[in-house]
Design a protein around this nucleic acid. Structure first.
Lengths: 227, 227
DNA sequence: TTAATTTTTTAGATTTGTCTAAACATTTAG
DNA sequence: CTAAATGTTTAGACAAATCTAAAAAATTAA
């Protein structure tokens, strides 16, 4: 890594930050230690590379790690991860609100911007954007102390016939997925009603804007609803 | 360098981009080949490291380089350098105009932002900022084709007694330098008159806002004037 | 509870960008 | 026009992050 990127005191490389972020996301769902292979898969790398990095992060006291036992974040590592996530989501808001990008175009750019290291920049950006609570995909933006404004939600795939709700977010950020939702009129804040659930394949039939449409069970799992 | 930063087709690392930018700036003043030591000094690195990098950039056809003969940019290398400079200056405008940073606070942050790789982002940022012609230090911002809107200027150190002009820019971006100018009321666009030049040390006495002040010859060299 | 399978780690290489020390070229001065 | 000084390159090493192939540990299943 070039010396030109080296930061001030708590130096974390882009790569280290990406590992911490991945470990954070993987421990969001199932509590407990995060496994080497799970990290490798998420980061599109090899288990051997992950092992090397886990040892390094452990030496820096960013994670707790013992051989064959997986990893979990220390308070310092968690704080670092949340800060990267905060930056990612704030930049996404900027890209959509100020530069008129669509919600399916911002993920990759934010992956780069999230590593810019300037606490002052983050706070001023937050202010410029009027302290947004959620990013363009509905994900909560942690405040400067790392606290999330937690809003409970249910996966669309868990709803029953005749349940109603608002689309609050998505748990998949790929451009293909988001474009598909857009085509079906499924955007943030939209009210919907479940009109039927297909016994055979679990696909969900919904009514949005008075129009009937249907999504596969796989897609329904990634649509987050507030009832 | 992490694979997470790897760009699309014409992949240039941050380091490579910084070398190209430095070579560009060094060839702005004195035409001809840029010397190894000059690059090493500007980049705060060693001549041996520069030699290695020059060979690499030469293989990628970003510079022309022959042993002991220095380097100069190929059209491709020049285009790459100008694009980095364009991004740097646009981000500086953003930081000052939108996030209310002072002109002496933006250089280091822009050094990071200039490497974000998204042509779409740059064009949208340019539009968002209403296509600015100059950055907060007066430097011209190349357009998307790499063309500069060239405005001729003279260094304050070259003016004679009773010459009048406008402050159009600065050729030194350190916070200390810029804060000093600010304290003297020397900001962009300010009209000034040279009231005297000190024979002994070359320092320049000027009148700004009807107040008499004085700058050393070294400082005067970095203040750019349009008569 | 041994055997098969999966997961994880180790060993050894590779790439990028850097360094120091020493050798080699070029330029400048006497 | 040599000799000294300056500038540049080579050689060899190192740290970060990655890889493949093989070994070791843990888990699952018969």
């Amino acid at each position: 890594m070039s010396k030109h990127l080296v930061r001030h005191l708590k130096m974390q490389s882009f790569t280290e930050e990406n590992y911490l972020k991945t470990i954070y996301h993987l421990s969001e769902n199932n509590e407990g230690a995060v496994q080497t292979n799970a990290i490798a898969e998420k980061m599109q790398t090899k288990a051997a590379s992950v092992t090397d990095m886990l040892r390094k992060l452990s030496e820096k006291e960013l994670i707790n790690y013992k051989k064959y036992q997986g990893a979990h974040l220390t308070p310092l590592g968690k704080q670092t991860a949340i800060n990267v996530i905060r930056k990612h989501r704030l930049w996404e808001v900027f890209l959509v609100e100020k530069l008129n990008f669509k919600w399916d175009e911002v993920h990759d750019i934010a992956e780069e911007l999230e590593h810019i290291n300037s606490p002052e920049l983050v706070e001023r950006l937050d202010e410029f954007l009027a302290f947004p609570k959620n990013d363009p995909h509905g994900d909560p933006i942690p405040d400067k102390n790392g606290n999330f404004d937690f809003v409970p939600f249910i996966k669309l795939s868990k709803l029953k016939k005749d349940d109603k709700g608002l689309i609050m977010g998505v748990s998949e950020h790929s451009s293909a997925f988001l474009k598909h939702l857009e085509k079906l009129g499924l955007t943030l804040g939209k009210p919907l009603t479940v009109s039927a659930i297909n016994d055979f394949d679990g696909s969900v039939e919904i009514i949005v804007d008075d129009k009937k449409t249907s999504v596969t069970r796989e897609i329904a799992k990634h649509i987050l609803i507030r009832i």
